[in-house]
Structure formats: structure tokens, C-alpha cells
Write a protein that binds this DNA or RNA. Structure first.
Lengths: 216, 216
DNA sequence: GTCTATATACCGATAGAC
DNA sequence: GTCTATCGGTATATAGAC
């Protein structure tokens, strides 16, 4: 490992490699990704790619950790700017949805990892996930104690929220085809907008599908 | 294409190949799956594998279509046995959750397809998905007309439900690690039971996370 | 229908010159 | 640090005997 720099600058060769690798790994999967293509997209000679980031598995782990670490900080910041539990929960859902649409590589990498069972994920990446989970868990626990939050299994709710976001944002083009085949193509229009998706997500997760009896 | 039989019997060579292929494709992904391993697991000579099912892409499409067609019929049957929209919605969520735990190959294949954008999915498979989506869409539309269902984008709700189910059922082992890292390993225990997951899923999707003001 | 042996191509990784 | 050339391993797919 020639370069042990854990915090690469924005415009270094390593940064270009990580960006290119995120794109290729997300599109082709780990086994389907070609080191030649990553080097070509990153505009780096293949031998230099190996020189800087190690082998294929080391590169993959750096891609995951780098992206998740960044998102973790952004989500934490968004939550800290809100006061009530309900608004914190909305901020968490909205921020993750925006991150998933603006940088769609990570959700796709995560979907693939889930398909494998996630057994190969390094501890540093699990630690990032646990930090994001703890944010939601704290919101839910505080809300149950001081606000009108119902009781729930926080891990299940976490998986429901991030799962819904990942599938919704990554499933736009498939959703187009499904909606067209079902005869109502117009319902797929909202899948292009992070705002529309976050709005529906907040609405459903906060209030559910059933209307209150009092308001029926 | 030597065998144009579209409805293979239960115990034929083709059935064994499809079962083995579903397992390997789900675990390794399309690019990562090895035709040698599929042949070995199916206890079929590799040349016979190609003789019966065509090449790797044709085998993959047959696996997807076969599994989704089966689930589609099972979900439809479960819904038809219920009367009210609320119970039909519960039946849809519970049945898909049970299918996802008893036959986990399809959810994992779908997660990988979503990661690729689903652009390579053949029309026959999209048609199966559209049929399942139409079931939910009908339940939601009827419920809004005659019961106390809130208005929503049916495609988004569909993606939220199936996304939550796929991530929850496929993310059990990863959930274990995340919960342990977060210091509350006990919340991961429910991820082994389809009943517990379906219960939390029905509860959250039907009623939301917030409690009614009247009951606070 | 069944199997062995192999063609053909590709990919990850590195040696070694500069 | 940079690049070219290439090794070694492995994958899909099939030819051809039985």
C-alpha cells in the first residue's frame, strides 16, 4: 500500500479514481466492473490505478466507505438544524432522498450489497451505517418519550425507510416501464423529482395510508 | 433453442437448472455467476445445460420470469380471499413478505436489477411486475373511493412497500452487524421472522409513525 | 440426448524499462 | 511516478465422439 492517505483531496488522482470506480461498480456490479474501464474513465493508466489504490477489492471498499462517510455527515447536519422529532424525521427522509438522487451511485452499490447479504462489507462501512441508524433510533426513542410517536422496531423502520428510498430513486426507469405496461404512465412522472418522492415518503411514513376515522 | 417448452414440469432437468440458477444468480449476480457452478448444483453436465436452456442470458430471463409469474398468482389469490380494502392491503404486504422469506432468491435478483436500472429486464417480466402493481393500485383506488384511504401516488407506494420488504428480508445479516455496532443487538432479532416483519410493515404503512393527536 | 475436450476471449495483476 | 507489454488464470460456449 504505497499511499496510506486516508483523506484524499478533492482533485487528486485518487479522487478521480474513486469517482470513476463508484460509477462503474454501481452500473456493472463488483464482478462485472472492469479495472480497464475504471482506469479509462478516471483517465489514469491501469498500472497507476493499482499503484495508488491497491487491488480491486481494496478499491471497492474505499469507494463504499468514502461515499457513506460523506452522507453520514450531511444527514447528521440536516437533523441537527431541526428542533422537533417530527421535523427531524422529515429532514432525515428528505435529506437521504436528495442524496440518493444527486449521487445515485451509493444506493445502487448498497442494493447490490444487500443482494449478497452484506457479508463482505468491511467494518468501517458497517460503522457508518450504524451511525446513520443511530440517528433514526434516537429520533424515534425521543419521539416516543416526549412526542406523539408510536412504538416500533427502529431497525425495521430504518430498513423500510432507506429501502423505500433506494428502490424508489433507483427504480425510476423500471417504474416507467411498469406504469406504461399497467396503463397509467402518468404516475411515473413523479419519480424524476426528489421533492415529489420525499413528500410522498414523509406523508406515508409519518401518517400511513389509512385516513383517521375522525377525518373520514 | 431446442426446447421451446414454456411450462416445464416440476421435476424435469429444466426445473432443476432453473432452481440452481436462481440460487447462484441471486448469490453472485449475473456477471459473478459461473455456468460451471450452476451445472454442478443442478447436477447436469455443462453441455446439457446449454443444450436445454440456451446461453447465459436466456437462462437468466427464464429464472426471473418463472419466479415472478409464480409469485404473481400467489399474491392475487391471497387478495381475492379478503373483502375489505384494509384487509386486502394487509394480505398483499403479508403475502409478499412471506414469499420474500421462503423464497429469497427473487428479491435478491430484483435488488440487483434495480441497481442496473432494470433496463435489461425483458417485457414478459415487466408485465408480471405491472400485474402485481395493478393489484395494489386497485386496492388504493377502491379504498380512496369507498373506505378511509388517503390519497397517494400508487407507484411510489408500491415501490416503498416492495422496496421495504426486499431490503428488510435481504438485509437480515447486515442488520445484525449494524444493530450490534449501534449497541442494540436485540432489535435485529425480529428480522428472522416473516410474521414480525409483516406486522411492523403493516403497522407502519397503514398507520404511520406518528400517533393520532386524539390518542396522545 | 450425453459427455469430454477444447477453442477463444477476456480479465486481474505485475514485471521491468524509463 | 509513469507506462508498455505480458503472464497466468479463468470464463463462456461449442465441436465432435458416442
Amino acid at each position: 500500500m504505497p499511499s496510506a492517505n486516508l483523506t484524499p483531496r478533492s482533485d487528486t488522482v485518487v479522487r478521480r479514481i474513486l469517482d470513476a470506480a463508484a460509477e462503474i461498480f454501481a452500473r456493472e456490479g463488483y464482478a462485472g466492473a472492469r479495472m480497464d474501464e475504471i482506469a479509462r474513465v478516471a483517465q489514469v493508466n491501469k498500472a497507476m490505478l493499482y499503484y495508488h489504490v491497491g487491488d480491486k477489492t481494496a478499491l471497492y471498499e474505499q469507494v463504499l466507505h468514502s461515499a457513506l462517510q460523506r452522507n453520514r455527515a450531511i444527514i447528521q447536519d440536516a437533523i441537527d438544524h431541526e428542533t422537533t422529532g417530527e421535523r427531524k424525521l422529515q429532514a432525515l427522509i428528505t435529506t437521504i432522498t436528495e442524496l440518493a438522487t444527486t449521487t445515485p451511485h451509493l444506493p445502487r452499490l448498497m442494493l447490490r450489497e444487500l443482494a449478497c447479504g452484506g457479508t463482505e462489507i468491511p467494518d468501517a462501512v458497517v460503522s457508518d451505517m450504524a451511525a446513520i441508524f443511530t440517528m433514526l433510533r434516537t429520533i424515534l426513542a425521543d419521539g416516543q418519550a416526549t412526542e406523539r410517536f408510536r412504538h416500533s422496531n427502529p431497525l425495521m423502520v430504518h430498513l423500510m425507510i432507506v429501502g423505500g428510498i433506494m428502490v424508489m430513486t433507483s427504480g425510476a426507469s423500471l417504474g416507467d416501464r411498469v406504469a406504461a405496461q399497467a396503463g397509467i404512465p402518468e404516475v411515473a412522472e413523479g419519480l424524476v423529482s426528489a421533492e415529489a418522492m420525499a413528500r410522498q415518503m414523509c406523508d406515508t411514513f409519518l401518517h400511513g395510508i389509512l385516513r383517521q376515522k375522525e377525518n373520514a
